[in-house]
């Protein structure tokens, strides 16, 4: 037996350290998580903590010093008729928007996964409303819904649905104003829901659908008994996103109506802003804004429970 003298090359210290770090999954996990954790703490946890603190204080726009005020800001909010109107509007805004976001998102997702010529152009166009800055798109809608110069009114006049010189005044009638706000919000969020649902649709194994086809199942039967049950958890997730984005959104309301006419489109988030920043009552605004939290928490918990039940089934 011959023993050969095999010299082992020493590993450079740097490489060793790198390899060691690369091999330590726990450390790597924290390293990769760190930016998200810092982000969440800085931009979510701290503002949330501040909102809670402010809601129990007398902090105003001009006086940042903290003095304990107990429940007085909540009592004032509950005494305020605009708060209750905003709360009701928030539920209407969120509920109606969610239904349309999920329905239209599903329809759009089906179109996006279909194979046809020019698919990429259609996908690009579909995503545009989501990628356009909300302030910009809302200002475009402000013009489209203008009381005098609305192009939508021009079209309605051209097809004879409106008389000469007649206008819908989209943002001046309470019902039409809420409809307009919901429509613009749905227009913005449908692409997001569609992309989420598209991911769910693509993940369904093709052989299930093909097997159903072989068994003679038609389009609607496959859709209702195979596709929708399989993507139900994803639908719930898109509904959750839609609900949270809608519940906390004030951009569309601020640009289109500023809560008007006569607070008919005022929602909790916009009322919190007007009261807290424009009105100078930061503590009062924080109390209104904080009211969103338990409602959002209940919505999130409810939807996630449904998802879990679906997955278990």
């Amino acid at each position: 037996m011959t023993v050969t003298d095999q010299r082992v090359e020493p590993t450079p210290v740097k490489e060793l350290a790198r390899r060691t770090l690369a091999d330590r999954e726990g450390a790597l996990a924290w390293l990769f998580l760190l930016p998200s954790v810092v982000y969440i703490i800085a931009l979510v946890a701290i503002p949330f903590g501040l909102a809670i603190a402010f809601a129990f204080s007398d902090v105003s726009a001009g006086d940042p010093s903290f003095d304990w005020a107990g429940m007085v800001n909540f009592a004032r909010a509950f005494d305020d008729p605009v708060f209750w109107r905003s709360l009701g509007n928030t539920f209407v805004f969120t509920g109606v928007s969610m239904v349309f976001i999920v329905l239209l998102g599903k329809v759009l997702a089906n179109i996006l996964v279909a194979d046809f010529r020019g698919k990429w152009v259609v996908r690009f166009l579909v995503l545009l409303p989501w990628t356009t800055p909300v302030a910009l798109s809302s200002i475009s809608w402000l013009w489209l819904l203008d009381s005098i110069y609305s192009p939508i009114d021009w079209v309605l006049r051209a097809v004879g649905l409106l008389g000469k010189g007649e206008n819908m005044v989209w943002l001046g009638e309470p019902g039409l104003a809420m409809t307009s706000v919901i429509a613009v919000h749905v227009w913005r969020l449908v692409p997001l829901a569609a992309v989420i649902l598209m991911a769910g649709l693509v993940a369904i194994p093709r052989d299930i659908d093909e097997a159903a086809k072989v068994d003679g199942a038609g389009y609607w039967r496959r859709m209702l008994e195979i596709t929708i049950p399989l993507v139900a958890p994803v639908i719930a997730v898109s509904a959750l996103f839609g609900a949270i984005f809608t519940f906390t959104d004030m951009a569309v309301v601020r640009v289109l109506t500023r809560g008007g006419p006569n607070d008919a489109t005022q929602v909790l988030s916009s009322w919190a802003f007007y009261r807290g920043i424009d009105g100078g009552d930061v503590a009062g605004g924080a109390a209104v804004a904080l009211f969103l939290f338990p409602l959002l928490l209940a919505v999130a918990v409810g939807i996630l429970r449904v998802v879990r039940r679906i997955e278990v089934d």
């Binding site: 402000l142 005098i148 943002l171």
Partner: peptide, 8 residues
């Protein structure tokens, strides 16, 4: 007309 309720 109702437009006065929608003005900015």
């Amino acid at each position: 007309t109702p437009e006065v309720f929608s003005w900015n």
